[in-house]
Design a binder for these strands. Sequence first.
DNA 1: ATAAATACGTTGTATTTACAACATGAGGAG
DNA 2: CTCCTCATGTTGTAAATACAACGTATTTAT
Lengths: 219, 219
Amino acid sequence: MKKYLSILKQTRLFSGVGEEDISAMLTCLDAKLRRYQNGEYVLHQGESVHDIMVLVEGALHIQKDDYWGNSNIIRNIGVGEIFGEAYVAPDSGAALNNVIAVEDSAVIFFEAQKIITTCPSACRFHTAVVQNLFFALSEKNRRLVQKLGHMSKRSTREKLMSYLSEEASRQNSATFVIPFNRQQLADFLSVDRSAMSNELCKMRDDGLIRFAKSEFTLL
Amino acid sequence: MKKYLSILKQTRLFSGVGEEDISAMLTCLDAKLRRYQNGEYVLHQGESVHDIMVLVEGALHIQKDDYWGNSNIIRNIGVGEIFGEAYVAPDSGAALNNVIAVEDSAVIFFEAQKIITTCPSACRFHTAVVQNLFFALSEKNRRLVQKLGHMSKRSTREKLMSYLSEEASRQNSATFVIPFNRQQLADFLSVDRSAMSNELCKMRDDGLIRFAKSEFTLL
DNA sequence: ATAAATACGTTGTATTTACAACATGAGGAG
DNA sequence: CTCCTCATGTTGTAAATACAACGTATTTAT
């Protein structure tokens, strides 16, 4: 597991913690390394999860199958990303999705209970890790709430206004650059690209916004 | 603040902690009680938040104003509910929404930093509170991810299939009761009630589902 | 420099949805 | 029982959206 220390160090979970300290915590937290071949399942939908996981090699897909058998890729996970934080639950932390290796991969498992329980021994940076985990969950939460706010609008125009409005507020300027191209923005808002493109132009013609490429101005 | 101990005890945050212990923690966590009159702002959109808050009296609205001045009620908060957990952030935990008292209300503020930092004194139940907060955030996260999964479907039918599929899986049965009436389900999925009702019947006619009132069966 | 790929806007059409309006049936209150 | 109210289903129409198809500009690769 030592060979992955440099990766763990760059992880959100261990932000601000040195390699020597991470190394010490690996035993303190009872970390386990598991390897998966391309195509293998890391988690099955419905399976009970008690760990917080970090991908240290390869790539994973999070995907969901519905009752009628339709499969749907939700997102992919790259090296250094944490997953499973949301499954930490007192009772049944049933995995909502399948997690599948799409390359030969390596994952480090940390028992969630051990992370969020302050360890009795003087594990110096344990508090830092607890905080990091909190920040990660909290930030993810905020992003989800925001996205949900946009997506809950009925029309494409309202979705766009909600998103652009929030981006302006976040960047604290009526002129700002968004981190998406048109297709990505359409995917993010779950609308059709061409319909969205059309609506953007109508909004421009209606005097609501101006834009060029990914730079937008609210009027 | 003592008079609210019985309310705090029933809160997610203090689940499993006795009143005497909560009382001790109030000083340990440097809790502050603030009162608001009907119509007063508890938080302003964009304001920096460093506290986790519990409503102990009255009622609040969480609402959002966009760049063009349109206001939008997102949800309301009742007595005993926690809010602000998602703003726990290392840097700028800018409030995404306005929080407004819609009755004369009382809110207890806990410094987030003090909650997620293990206190140096032997505060017996601090660990329990940290875990509770974690579970709360984690559960909220899961709910958001699920809802987002449904809402990101393009058509009403797909939204319904996604929701019903997940509910069946959660209740571990092809027949299950949902906690919504039609209007609530429509609001939850952000679609029109009558259009949804129509689609449900089409799905029944297509042999996908059966239902009566709030009991559904997947076929 | 040329060719290929990509991003973006535009248009027309078929489909889907929202919205309004009304029908039906189950409960509750008097 | 009768009158209400409320939840749900049904229908028609107008509006919005998805989808496909295409033109053009810009970028990337060779």
